[in-house]
């Protein structure tokens, strides 16, 4: 069971034996395209796992299966050790799996609080036209942002007036507002300046330290993946080809594995 899982703030949570999510031997076809050929990934509490690979390697498809956007054809999907059926996005969110898409899905004309709660507003009764309980929303938003060490962020400026890094942070904050156990991040540093990417990396580590499992899809091998994750899963042609501990590998080696160069560094298994 999920005894060792999230919600233990400020304690050093080390990867436990039961992974939060474990996907094994996943197969997925899109018509004649064989997108996933026995792909696997698992993430433990407090762990940041990077999924890397060339375009078309299947990493995006794999996380979309995890998030319930695509249903898998066959394979094993375990959540906290138990088999689960995830075929639509709400299945995943109900388990506690949140996704931050690359385009962030923010409304630039709304402020941080409105974006954080979008679609899940705290509202009053129906007869009042579901009036938004703004004050309570602000308090909860401030709590989450403070937990993410983003306490100074303006709650009332339109998100469109903020920097790319701040927007990325708001998108991540939205995903953890509902205390998930796993957060999937799609290219979180892609469009960011070096310093903004640094702050997002820090934020991801903060979340992992609070016991969340983080799955990151990224092309930013040399900076972000090697320096800011715990484990790297390399995919090629819909299957896993290598697995590294981030602290024991260089960017070169990861890239080699991605393009199928030097498979001698394969430490998997």
């Amino acid at each position: 069971m999920g005894v060792e899982t999230a919600q233990r703030p400020n304690t050093e949570v080390r990867p436990s034996d039961t992974p939060l999510v474990s996907m094994r031997n996943i197969q997925k076809h899109f018509g004649s395209l064989h997108a996933l050929r026995g792909a696997s990934v698992e993430v433990h509490p407090g762990e940041v796992v990077a999924l890397v690979g060339d375009n078309g390697a299947g990493k995006s498809t794999l996380v979309k299966v995890m998030a319930g956007v695509h249903a898998m054809d066959s394979g094993e999907y375990l959540f906290e050790g138990k088999p689960v059926h995830v075929s639509k996005p709400t299945d995943a969110t109900e388990l506690g799996i949140q996704t931050v898409y690359q385009d962030l899905s923010l409304c630039h004309n709304l402020d941080a609080v409105q974006n954080l709660f979008l679609g899940r507003e705290l509202t009053g009764p129906r007869w009042g036209g579901r009036r938004i309980r703004r004050a309570e929303s602000e308090v909860r938003a401030r709590e989450v942002l403070t937990r993410m060490r983003l306490g100074g962020m303006s709650l009332t400026r339109p998100v469109g007036a903020m920097s790319g890094g701040q927007r990325q942070n708001i998108a991540i904050a939205r995903s953890i507002l509902w205390t998930p156990k796993v957060v999937i991040l799609d290219e979180p540093t892609a469009a960011l300046s070096h310093s903004a990417a640094e702050s997002v990396s820090k934020l991801i580590r903060t979340l992992a330290d609070q016991g969340l499992g983080i799955v990151v899809v990224s092309h930013d091998i040399h900076h972000f993946v090697v320096n800011s994750t715990d484990r790297i899963e390399v995919m090629r042609l819909g299957a896993n080809v290598a697995s590294f501990k981030s602290s024991e590998v260089t960017g070169e080696q990861v890239v080699n594995a991605m393009v199928g160069g030097n498979v001698g560094v394969n430490l998997a298994g």
Partner: peptide, 24 residues
Amino acid sequence: QETQFGLFLYAVGNNAEAARRNGV
């Protein structure tokens, strides 16, 4: 200004896809 419906109008007008992904 005050209701969820009103907020959704602004959200959809700015980014309909984001609103859809968030359950609108």
